[in-house]
Every structure is written in C-alpha cells, then in structure tokens.
Nucleic acid binder design. Structure first.
Length: 322
DNA sequence: AACGGTTGACACGCAGTTCT
DNA sequence: AGAACTGCGTGTCAACCGTT
C-alpha cells in the first residue's frame, strides 16, 4: 500500500544521519558506533543481571555514552531493542556513523580557513602569512601556530626546544595539552586548572561550530539557524567542548588529513584524555564551574528563560518533517 | 578524507495589507 | 494612527553530493 500525503520534501537522507551529526559533536566524536550499540545492547539484555563491579571502567564509560545516545534520538532505543534483525541494527549504526563522520569532516574544512583569523588581534598581520587553505606551513613550522600548539609547561621561546619540536626529536603526544587550551595562553604549574579550556580561540571555534560561523565576530547576526538551534541545544556538554578543542588543535597543526589513529597528530588520545579528565568524579567542582562559564560565554540567554521561541524553531521543524 | 560545488532552509528587510 | 500579519526578494550558511 502506498502512503502518500501531501509532502513537498522527498526526504533524501535518513534522519538518523542528522542525529548522528549532533551525537558526534556533543556526545562522542571518535567512536565506533556499531560497536557502541552492539555492546550496549548486550549489557542491557544478556548482562543486565551482572553487578556494577563486573564491568570495567572502560565499559562503564562506554555504557554512559550508549545511554546518552539512546536518549538523544527519539524512539531509537525502542527501535533497537525490538529489532529482530541484526542487519537493521547495523544499518542504524551506519547511518549514525555517517552523520558523525560528515559533521566532523565539514567542521574541519570550515575551521581550516576560519582559524587563521583568530591567531592575532584583528588588524594585525601574520608574519609570515599562512595560506587559508594550506596546512603545510602550520604546526611547529610557524612561529604563531607553533606557540599555540606547544605543550603547556614547555618553553616555546627556548630556541633549542623549538628546534627539537620542529625536527620531531621532541614528539608531543595527545595527552600533553597545548597552551592554546589555556586562557591568555598562560599555564600556571601551581594550579593546572587555572584558565584550562577557557581560551579565546576555543570559544571562537566553539561558536563557529555550534552557534554559526558568523556569530564569532558579530553579535547574533546569523542569517539562519546554527547547529545548536537546529538541534535544540541550549547548554554545552563536556564532549562538545573537547570536540571544539580537538578541531582547533587539528586546524593549527600541519597535518592535512584527519585520522583517529594517526600517531603524529594523536587526535584520539587528545580527545579521550581531555574528556576523561572532565568526567573524573574528583573534578566535578571545577568542571561544573567550567561548564557554567561556557554556558554564559556561548549561549547568551543561558540564565534567562526569556528567549522567544520563533514559530520556525527546531521543534516546529521536526514536527513538520513527520 | 579532502575539496569544490550545489541545494534548500532560513533570517532579514521591504512593501503592502489588515486588524485594533 | 500604529501594531501585526503576509508575501516576496535577497544573501548567508549548514547540509549535502560528486569527484578525487
């Protein structure tokens, strides 16, 4: 039986791709969605009797991500739990993965040129200039990007160190966080939390991705809804901050290809090490303060409920699509 | 996965109309 | 009169798509 309502839009892409985009940006960017779902289902069914202690820390973390995924996509949990074919679950995972991957790819492309504008105060010129579409001259090769990528606590102005960073003699792994994460690009080794994840360039990258590129410079002069609005996002998540940081770090690097498993860029370790720290129960006080700071910086109406909801909000859009 | 190009949704402004 | 709604044109931008 054919069911045809008066539909204007012939839906071209699966809505799961759309949800996958938001999942990648805000819940977990670098994971195998199929494994995530498969393992999650097993834990919910076969292993549901097992006590909490039976699971490793890694499994508990994974299950948290799984739960967040189930909650973020309406109807997904039921669809998966009642699905009788393994193939359908696999298909769902593929759609979500596709969304997460393409969003990530779009963001790297977009940030690649935009980030050049944020390296110096407006009006000042980079010496030597960096091509907006060229990455080779970035990383430790350039004075400015090198200074930002230099690990906190390492002295970039030391010529010998600079040389070793450039030659690769001194290699930097993902869990050595660069100074670009810190407010004013200053690291206080007596207080490692001071200014962490509060730099201007990070906020700009975040706004670029979530609020819309134009919102970085001007005040709410966007011509269309940004990602946050599209997905009804009204507050930041730890993973979204880490995501923006990972994107910014990659944009400054000289690597042209984003790869999870690339050891020189080490993006995955960077992402995971930051996220792990933010989810550490011992750090909740600092993390909560940080999240509040971010919400105020990124979502102007975070504290007030005064934001008028336009009739063409994300909600209305979703309804219309049904 | 990057890159370049296209698509379609949306904000905004403008003008004209209708409702208080 | 002014507020509020409607329709249209335009520019912007996220999403998408094909190619490499």
């Amino acid at each position: 039986a054919l069911q045809l309502g008066p539909r204007k839009k012939p839906r071209t892409t699966d809505p799961l791709v759309h949800h996958g985009r938001h999942f990648g940006r805000t819940i977990h960017a670098l994971c195998n969605v199929n494994a995530l779902i498969t393992n999650g289902v097993i834990r919910m069914s076969e292993r549901s009797e097992e006590p909490e202690e039976a699971f490793t820390a890694q499994e508990r973390r994974e299950h948290k991500v799984f739960t967040l995924l189930m909650r973020s996509v309406p109807g997904l949990e039921e669809r998966i739990m009642t699905s009788d074919s393994e193939e359908e679950v696999h298909n769902i995972a593929t759609m979500l993965q596709k969304g997460a991957s393409s969003a990530r790819s779009d963001d790297t492309k977009s940030l690649k040129s935009a980030i050049i504008d944020w390296l110096l105060p407006a009006g000042e010129c980079l010496i030597p200039p960096i091509g907006r579409n060229i990455k080779i001259e970035r990383g430790f090769h350039h004075e400015r990007t090198g200074a930002l990528l230099c690990p906190a606590g390492v002295d970039w102005s030391d010529q010998e160190i600079k040389q070793k960073l450039r030659s690769g003699e001194l290699s930097v792994s993902g869990d050595q966080w660069p100074i670009l994460l810190y407010s004013s690009y200053k690291y206080d080794d007596t207080n490692p939390w001071k200014g962490l994840l509060q730099s201007v360039i990070l906020v700009k990258a975040y706004k670029h991705i979530f609020t819309s590129p134009s919102s970085v410079e001007r005040e709410a002069k966007a011509t269309r809804s940004g990602n946050a609005r599209i997905h009804g996002m009204t507050s930041v998540t730890c993973a979204s901050i880490v995501y923006a940081a990972t994107q910014a770090r990659f944009a400054l690097s000289s690597s042209s290809v984003f790869s999870r498993t690339d050891t020189t860029t080490d993006s995955e370790r960077f992402y995971n090490s930051l996220l792990e720290m933010l989810e550490d129960p011992d750090e909740t006080v600092e993390v909560n303060a940080l999240l509040t700071w971010w919400n105020r910086s990124v979502f102007p109406n975070y504290n007030t409920n005064s934001r008028p909801v336009s009739k063409d909000s994300a909600l209305a859009k979703i309804k219309a699509k049904r």
